[in-house]
Design a protein around this nucleic acid. Sequence first.
DNA 1: ATGTCGCCCTGGGAGC
DNA 2: TGCTCCCAGGGCGACA
Length: 283
Amino acid sequence: MPELPEVETVRRGLVPVMEGETILRAQVNRPDLRWPLPDRMAERLTGRRVLALRRRSKYVLAELDSGETLIVHLGMSGRMLVSGQQLGQFRHEHPAPQAHDHVVLDLSGGARVTFNDPRRFGAMDLWPSATLDTHWLLAGIGPEPFGNAFHEDYLVQRLRGRNTPIKAALLDQKVVAGLGNIYVCEALHRAGVSPVRKAGRLSARRAGALVPVIRATLADAIEAGGSSLRDYRQADGELGYFQHTFRVYGREGCPCVTAECGGTVRRIVQSGRSTFYCARCQR
DNA sequence: ATGTCGCCCTGGGAGC
DNA sequence: TGCTCCCAGGGCGACA
């Protein structure tokens, strides 16, 4: 689930139950996820107030009143399940613990946030907030797609001379933060750019034009995620926000949705990962 | 520096 | 029903 729009959706879902609240209890059920969890993680979280919830790329960042920030990455299968929140006059019960519930946080507002991650590609760490940018997971990440540093001249410059397919270049988190396999495929289709085209062989005009298309693709996805945020709250934290209408992703063999195109969506493999695109209208 | 590949894990679905 | 194989939205580190 977790590319930038999904992580942003998760963040927005967590804000009302975490921001300004105190972590009354932290339960850490194993010593590691993808990497070792920080030393004494439960103690360093317990009693801390969450000052702000932010997002950087695909990371959720919980700034604590201890001067540390909890860094969370959802990997491929990570979930942040919310239970026990107040809904009108009702308060949901906490569900029974599930397999792969690795970290459980009980907040002062009554909510419980459970990090569940079957594949354990996720990660958590605690790091001084003042030097968050220097954390090894965050240090090399490129500009936020909605930030001022991500603009047409930047992207043109960044792609110049690169011999890798544009698909791989946009997947590279050093080029732009937060894009994953789905939204790269979707953005390239919207832009009419072939995923196999070498990044450096895209005209400056077409390379620059990717910037607003990437933003629009992500913004639409966030909006779609936001619309199902209500389900997320109602349904005991069950994360079910994928009513997105993908134009190419997962649509191998289906007709291209571009008006008057008439092409068929193909699936190919690039650097070991599926790419979906229409060879007729993506050039 | 740049680009590709293997790998860390588990679960779900397709096919037999 | 049960097995095997393939696939999965990430990203690091090793290699050419």
